[in-house]
C-alpha cells in the first residue's frame, strides 16, 4: 500500500472498483494515538497506584473502547462518501477526546497542553461533527427510501429481503395483501411466472439463473406503475401488487418481450445470447377474497391452468 492509498479516504470518488478504506483510516487514527501517547509520556509523569481511581479508569477507558467500536462500524458498514466521512471524523475526534480523558487518569500532565483544556475541546467538537453527520444521514435516508420505491410497502424488515433479487419475499407480500384486505383497499395482484426457467438453470448454470432472476426483478421494479409493490414469490415467480385498474388486456406478450430483451442485454457480457424469458401472468382482484392465502392460492391455480394449455 502506497502513501497515496493511505489517504484515499479523502480523495475517494464514485468507482466501480471497491477500495478498502478500513486499513487506511485505522493507520491514521493509530498514528494520532501513538504521537499523543508519546508526547504525554514525555511531558507528564505516571501517577502512583494509590492515586489511581480504578472505577474512573474502567469507566473512561471503556467509553473510549466503545467509541472506537462505533468508529469501526461507521467505516465497515457504509460505502465511502461524504456522510461516511463526517461519521468517521466525528467518531475519530470523539474517541480521541475520550482517550485523553482516560489518559489523565493514569498520567499527570498539569502544565502541559494535554491537560483538561484539550480534552474539553475534543469531546464537544466530536459531538458537533456527529450531530452534523446525523442530519446528513437523515437526508440520505430519505433519498434512499425513494430508491426503495416499488420494492417496499412502508414497512422495513431486512430479514424478509431475498438475497438473489433484493425484493421482499412471499411472507412480506402476504402481509401486504392481508392489510389491503383489512383496510378494504382495492388492489390487483399480478403473479408473473417465468416459462421454462429450469432450462436456463440447466443449460447455463445456477449462477446464471440467479443473474436472470435478479435482472427480471430489476426490470419489473423499473416498469411497475407508481404505487406498486414488487415481491419475489419464490423460485421463478414474482408478484406485482398495485392499485386496481381496468386494464384487462393480455400483458403476457408485452412483458415477455420486454424481459427477453432486457435479460439478453444484461447477460451479453457473459457471452450468453438469446435468453428466452417468456412469462405467464395471472391477474387476481385482491378484494374478492377474504384471506391473503386464498388470493395467493387463486393466483397459483391460474398459473397452473395456463401452464397446462
Amino acid at each position: 500500500m502506497s502513501l497515496v492509498d493511505l489517504f484515499r479516504i479523502n480523495t475517494s470518488k464514485p468507482s466501480l472498483i471497491t477500495h478498502n478504506t478500513l486499513t487506511s483510516s485505522y493507520v491514521l487514527l493509530g498514528l494520532a494515538y501513538v504521537l499523543c501517547a508519546a508526547k504525554a509520556l514525555y511531558h507528564g509523569a505516571p501517577k502512583s497506584l494509590a492515586e489511581i481511581d480504578w472505577i474512573d479508569v474502567f469507566g473512561e477507558g471503556g467509553t473510549w473502547i466503545i467509541s472506537l467500536v462505533w468508529f469501526h462500524f461507521a467505516v465497515a458498514w457504509r460505502p465511502p462518501g461524504p456522510v461516511t466521512r463526517w461519521l468517521m471524523t466525528g467518531f475519530a475526534v470523539l474517541s480521541f477526546g475520550f482517550f485523553l480523558d482516560a489518559l489523565d487518569e493514569v498520567l499527570r500532565f498539569d502544565e502541559t497542553l494535554l491537560g483538561h483544556s484539550l480534552e474539553s475541546i475534543f469531546i464537544p467538537a466530536g459531538i458537533t461533527i456527529l450531530t452534523f453527520a446525523a442530519i446528513s444521514l437523515h437526508q440520505e435516508q430519505q433519498i434512499l427510501n425513494r430508491q426503495q420505491l416499488r420494492r417496499e410497502a412502508n414497512f422495513r424488515d431486512h430479514q424478509a429481503i431475498d438475497s438473489i433479487t433484493d425484493l421482499y419475499n412471499a411472507d412480506y407480500c402476504r402481509q401486504a395483501i392481508h392489510s389491503a384486505i383489512e383496510s378494504n383497499t382495492q388492489l390487483d395482484l399480478w403473479m408473473i411466472d417465468l416459462e421454462r426457467f429450469d432450462k436456463i438453470n440447466q443449460h447455463y448454470s445456477f449462477s446464471t439463473g440467479d443473474t436472470v432472476l435478479n435482472r427480471v426483478a430489476n426490470v419489473l421494479v423499473a416498469t411497475a406503475p407508481s404505487g406498486a409493490l414488487v415481491c419475489r414469490y419464490g423460485g421463478d415467480r414474482f408478484i406485482l401488487l398495485q392499485p386496481a385498474t381496468d386494464l384487462t388486456e393480455n400483458i403476457d406478450e408485452t412483458l415477455s418481450q420486454l424481459l427477453t430483451h432486457a435479460t439478453s442485454f444484461a447477460l451479453s457480457n457473459l457471452a450468453i445470447k438469446n435468453i428466452d424469458c417468456r412469462v405467464r401472468v395471472a391477474k387476481v382482484s385482491v378484494n374478492k377474497f377474504n384471506t391473503a392465502e386464498a388470493v395467493l392460492a387463486q393466483a397459483n391455480a391460474v398459473i397452473i391452468e395456463k401452464k397446462q394449455c
Binding site: 412471499a170 411472507d171 402476504r174 414469490y233 419464490g234 423460485g235 421463478d236 395467493l296 392460492a297 397459483n300
Partner: peptide
C-alpha cells in the same frame, strides 16, 4: 408450513 408458497412454486 410458513414456506407453503415455496411448495406452490417448486
Amino acid at each position: 408450513p410458513s414456506d407453503v408458497d415455496q411448495f406452490y412454486v417448486h
